[in-house]
Design a protein around this nucleic acid. Sequence first.
DNA 1: GCTTGACCTTGTCGTAGCGGCAGGGTTTCT
DNA 2: AGAAACCCTGCCGCTACGACAAGGTCAAGC
Lengths: 245, 245
Amino acid sequence: MRIGEIAALVGITPRAIRHYHHIGLLPEPRRQANGYRSYSVRDAVLLARIRRLTELGLPLEEVRDVLADDAGRELAEVLGELDADLARQEREIQERRRVLAALLEDPLTPDAPLSPALVELLKSAPTTASPAAAKDREHLSLLDTAVGGDAVYAALRPLAEDPAVLRLYERLDELDGAAADDPRIAALADEMAAAVPDEVLAEIPYIGPVATGFGQALLADYPPAQAEVVRRVMQTLTARMHRRP
Amino acid sequence: MRIGEIAALVGITPRAIRHYHHIGLLPEPRRQANGYRSYSVRDAVLLARIRRLTELGLPLEEVRDVLADDAGRELAEVLGELDADLARQEREIQERRRVLAALLEDPLTPDAPLSPALVELLKSAPTTASPAAAKDREHLSLLDTAVGGDAVYAALRPLAEDPAVLRLYERLDELDGAAADDPRIAALADEMAAAVPDEVLAEIPYIGPVATGFGQALLADYPPAQAEVVRRVMQTLTARMHRRP
DNA sequence: GCTTGACCTTGTCGTAGCGGCAGGGTTTCT
DNA sequence: AGAAACCCTGCCGCTACGACAAGGTCAAGC
């Protein structure tokens, strides 16, 4: 038999057969005078076994082991491991589909998939057009992957629902074009820091000193006066975290 | 932030981030004087979205589309397709596990995974030490992948259960070292061909002329006298297939 | 001041299982 | 005799990075 013939017989492609030769899964058959590979029925039987094993999802390397070892016990063991692996994959897929279903069911799906707990929190917050509030929501989506966990969101809920917080955001917005020594900065920073309850701080691992890379990056994201407010708030909060370990 | 910092923040590796830059999924940030990449909070938010999307199993190319398009509708569509894809994978895995369970349950599992129908057929056949019978069982395992289908095995069952067939195998075995013109050949070939019922021929697509690659390969698998028997049987059977289309 | 260790940089190779293509020879049908 | 349908070898491409290699940078400790 030539390669196309045996390939059609066992239902695989000639390319796959050559690949099996290449990796040593199937020995090269003898050649005809013209260089064509000449296959025997025994080759076909072997290829049929290979096909059935690979269709189960067995990697080629393990197929080789099974064919090499004078099978029996080896095969059952390998298939057992394969089943365990497939079971794991199945659980992973089901978990992902569970998350997906939750996302698709909620027509909100802002523009990024968020944890259900955070979606819940964002829903509970009053809507506002404040750019500062929008930016904070982005930071929350970062918190979602960086920290995660329902405890944070539970601690944040009173803050999110408090309409007074909106006024703080608006006052921050008003500092957009202001200078870094604007007189409104000190009071706003004090009030913002005071608005954050201890429970929230307890849930956030450790922001680190303001001079940290993340702190610098955060400040760089704001215009001067707002950055100064953020800097003071961070300083106050980290001091509070240190005082109450 | 430097790359290691932002990587730890969003829970991925620096290598992955560089990879995202390389494929254009995330734009390169500006560099510090020493050449280090300098990341902003916005980058972190983007990376967090990327991470959540990839964790769902979304390929990076589609993640790029979702981030590029001013999302909303696009996202839901992509996630819908993803869910359909995952559902398909889940079905495939379940099917494979179903087959695996059947194989593992049956302590027989000769040395290759066979279709349940074929296993059933082999069980129904009387055990024998005949080499010719063993070879035929290998050919059956080839038939399993080449043709498949319960109808073939149903048609073969009376043949498999017939103890008289064993005598035919034994007579074939006796021709092992014989010459190609042995006087026992003609009678044995006739009887073997006669033993194959029409129902079996009806289920086998078309063997093709004896001179075909497969026919040649099959004959090459037998010593001279046996090959001559097989050749005659094949000839008779193909003639019968032609007479009754 | 000098070393050590933990970072960062670029680049290349490897992964599983083939598909696709290039560039060439063979056989077979018309 | 030309075209279609085979066959050959060999190399690139795919996913989503991990694992090097070979070097530059920076803070801390001796």
